[in-house]
Write a protein that binds this DNA or RNA. Structure first.
Lengths: 196, 196
DNA sequence: GCGATGACAGATTTCAATATCTGTCACTCC
DNA sequence: GGAGTGACAGATATTGAAATCTGTCATCGC
């Protein structure tokens, strides 16, 4: 179907996502992807060297979306402490919505994440950079104390301290009734630590 | 072997641990446990209603050991802030040693933990209580600021913020070269947040 | 010429038959 | 009398043969 369109990496990635969504990470095959696209599986291998590379690219695309969704919170108006809380809240809300809205898709995603730790490491770096930018502004505004070491290390500490509220490994805990309170408590702990 | 000794819950738990250690969580059976003890599997069911109950008891015992090992750090001499750092460091070191020393055993343990979230919840409660005790002392000593809500909530926030360094789900990260630095950074973040 | 194909070898997965395990209970034997 | 047994039914796991998948590449056809 739609065999008239040229076969691009982009179209293959979309089809792969659909197949992963439909069959899950264990049963999604390259043959399935090719079938969705109406081509032979050999054609898929023209764009991606291996099945692993294809899955990695999907993972990357997926994570990239989170980064993009958070940009507005990095560039928001207002004092840096509020922006930090806004950013952390947005990240938690985003992850929680995904996990709660489609638990199966989340499970699929978690498998992909487990397979591609290098991609995840780079993703975490990006998130830490977003925190660091807010922290720098806060320091400039006189809201946050000078970091003990460098801003990046502090940003990483903030990221690690809130890990329980964005790491998919903890997705199961996010539906607990006191998850919101626990999140608020950790954020206010972090805010007190940063305060000038 | 040693069939002369009476069959106690304690002996069954020890045998179960041995079987779990040797065969892993997937292949450890009640029949194996009975074989180690030199009894019929029916006898095991006299002490534990189900295989699940048996595994739960093993998990509980295992977690209890961590609590006991940490008591000296709760009751240590010295200022509360140092005691808190000591306690957190001890917990991280304990977990890291177990994870690094025998990864397979750790994987087994993680499966048990996944099966028995109620037991884990109670365990976390105990750990949070240990933190709360140190926090109370720190408040009395004038080292820690008055908690925004109750001490328990703050203790839980400290526990959550350091999650990445004691939750077995993150065991894989603990061997990274910068794990130690990341831990220190989060602990110093927490300390700044608590400071009076 | 170049993107697409499909047959192929070796690796992995599926499926159904077989074996083992879980949990029960009437029984044994001290 | 009560701890311990082992045969049993239903559930779960193992196994090996057959099917499918991955990745390659000589070939096709536009």
């Amino acid at each position: 179907m739609a065999a008239t369109e040229t076969l691009t990496a982009e179209r293959i990635l979309e089809a792969t996502e659909e197949v992963l969504r439909r069959y899950g990470p264990a049963k999604a095959t390259v043959v399935d992807v090719a079938r969705v696209l109406g081509v032979s599986h050999g054609s898929v291998y023209r764009h991606f060297r291996t099945k692993a590379a294809l899955r990695e690219a999907v993972t990357e695309r997926w994570l990239e979306r989170t980064i993009v969704a958070l940009v507005p919170y990095v560039e928001a108006e207002g004092p840096a402490d509020e922006r930090l809380t806004g950013w952390l809240t947005a990240l938690f809300a985003l992850k929680r919505k995904k996990a709660g809205g489609d638990p199966e898709l989340m499970a699929t995603f978690q498998v992909l994440i487990g397979e591609n730790s290098a991609v995840v490491d780079r993703h975490e770096e990006h998130l830490v950079e977003q925190i660091a930018r807010i922290l720098e502004d806060g320091h400039r505004e006189g809201l946050f104390a000078a970091p003990e070491r460098d801003v990046k290390a502090t940003a990483r500490a903030v990221f690690d301290a809130t890990d329980r509220f964005h790491n998919p490994a903890h997705a199961a805990d996010w539906s607990a009734p006191d998850a919101e309170d626990a999140f608020t408590a950790v954020v206010s702990l972090v805010q007190r630590a940063l305060k000038a």
